[in-house]
Structures are given as structure tokens and as C-alpha cells.
């Protein structure tokens, strides 16, 4: 257990310090979210309707930006071979990396989205629903993205192919994540959050196995 915690802490430090890219992903998220109102115009009525969709799409793209290096950096300098040889199973390594990615990207994205939601004119109830949906849904983005990162870790231009293979799998998260906010705004019964929670739990529970299989395959063992 402590090895797992150490691995999470190591990856977190690497992500947060210079060159890790976590801060860049957050800046990218804020930049995209700022660009959309400039593109579609400052009509608040329209912005309220599209806020959840825009913020969700921007959050997923920002998370994907930093995903391609999830295993690749350790693969290139040989650390991944050592982790594979360590008593920690590759499934646990994958889970630790996914957790570190969420803590350094998904969680701060959620916090920034709360501020941006206000700028988009979302009412308090809508903002709460958006933050809840991001909090529940972003772990699934990190987990499913982890599968893609593991499968593409030996490809030199993996950063281009990763979003393409992962986006269809992440689509349900975006659908139900922004759907939960729209249902809240319209005062409808809100089952989307429950579905999102179920999907997210399933993704986080099963993805480490698929990601570990991908790593094993690329390490050639």
C-alpha cells in the first residue's frame, strides 16, 4: 500500500513541477473556455445553455493533452521496466498513475470550472450540478485515457492517435456530464448524475486491468 502511495506522490510531484504539464493543461482549459464566448458572442442566455457542454468538452480536451506522457516518459527512461519488476503489480502501477493524473488535472479542472461557470452566468444550482458532474466524471476520463496512454506508449506520434481512440469511449461521460447540468437548469428529474457515477465507477475499476495489459504488451513480456 505504501509503495502505491509513494508512486502516486512521485507522479504528482513530476506532474506539478516544471515540465510536468499539469499547469499547462489547466491554462489550456481556461483559454478555451475564454475563447468560446468571444466566438459565439456575449449573449448570456445562450452562454447559460452551452456552458456545461463547452466546459465539459474543454475539460476533456485539457485532460487528454497531458495524458500521452502518462506512461511514455517512464517508458523512455526505463523507469517503467523497473516498476514492472517491482513487487507492485502493473495493475496497481496503472491505478496509481491514473490517480495521480486525476489529482493533478481532473480535480483542479473541476475547481476552475466552478469559477468559469459563474462567468458563463450559470445559476447556483447549475454550478453545483456542473461541479458535481465534473467531480464524478473526470476520474473516468483519466481512467479511460490511461488505457489509451498504455496502448500508445511505444508510438512516437502517440499524442495524435491517443485522443482519436479515446474520445469515442469518453463520449458517454460528456453526454451525461453536461446532460446533468441541463436537466438541473430545466428542473427535470436528474438521473444523469447516477448514470455518470455508475459509468465512472465501472471505468475506474476496470481500466487499470486494460491499461496494465497495454503496458505489458509494449514492454514485450
Amino acid at each position: 500500500m505504501s509503495a502505491l502511495r509513494r508512486l502516486v506522490a512521485r507522479d504528482l510531484v513530476l506532474a506539478i513541477r516544471a515540465g510536468g504539464g499539469a499547469a499547462l493543461a489547466l491554462a489550456f482549459f481556461a483559454a478555451v473556455a475564454t475563447l468560446v464566448p468571444l466566438g459565439v458572442g456575449p449573449d448570456l442566455k445562450l452562454l447559460v445553455r452551452i456552458a456545461a457542454g463547452v466546459l465539459w468538452v474543454a475539460a476533456v480536451l485539457a485532460a487528454l493533452l497531458s495524458l500521452d506522457r502518462l506512461f511514455q516518459a517512464d517508458f523512455e527512461d526505463g523507469s517503467l521496466d523497473l516498476m514492472a519488476l517491482s513487487p507492485l503489480s502493473l495493475e496497481a502501477v496503472a491505478l496509481a498513475k491514473i490517480a495521480a493524473h486525476w489529482l493533478s488535472t481532473g480535480l483542479p479542472l473541476t475547481l476552475i470550472a466552478a469559477v468559469l461557470a459563474v462567468a458563463y452566468g450559470l445559476p447556483a444550482s447549475g454550478t453545483v450540478a456542473l461541479v458535481a458532474s465534473l467531480l464524478i466524471g473526470t476520474p473516468a476520463v483519466s481512467a479511460i485515457g490511461g488505457i489509451g496512454a498504455a496502448l500508445t506508449l511505444s508510438i512516437r506520434r502517440g499524442g495524435l492517435i491517443l485522443p482519436f481512440i479515446v474520445l469515442p469511449l469518453i463520449a458517454p461521460v460528456v453526454i451525461f456530464g453536461s446532460g446533468a447540468v441541463l436537466a438541473e437548469l430545466d428542473g427535470l428529474a436528474n438521473g444523469a448524475l447516477w448514470f455518470l457515477a455508475a459509468f465512472s465507477l465501472l471505468a475506474v475499476a476496470l481500466s487499470p486491468f486494460a491499461a496494465a495489459a497495454g503496458v505489458r504488451l509494449n514492454l514485450g513480456s
Binding site: 479511460i144 488505457i147 496502448l151 500508445t152 511505444s154 508510438i155 506520434r157 502517440g158 492517435i161 482519436f164 481512440i165 469515442p168 469511449l169 486494460a210 495489459a213 497495454g214 504488451l217 509494449n218 514485450g220
Partner: peptide, 28 residues
């Protein structure tokens, strides 16, 4: 998904690895 399986299968040079990686994606 089909296009992703094709892209992944074509991006990895080693035939066996490419097929297995594409296979994992297909199953997921």
C-alpha cells in the same frame, strides 16, 4: 471505434503488438 482500431493497428510497427493493442481497444 472501428477507425481507432484501424489507426492503432497501423501505427505500431511490430505486427503482433499492433494486433494485440488493437485487440485490447476492440474489447474495451
Amino acid at each position: 471505434l472501428y477507425l481507432g482500431v484501424m489507426a492503432l493497428g497501423n501505427a505500431i510497427e511490430d505486427e503482433t503488438r499492433a494486433a494485440r493493442a488493437a485487440g485490447i481497444l476492440a474489447i474495451v
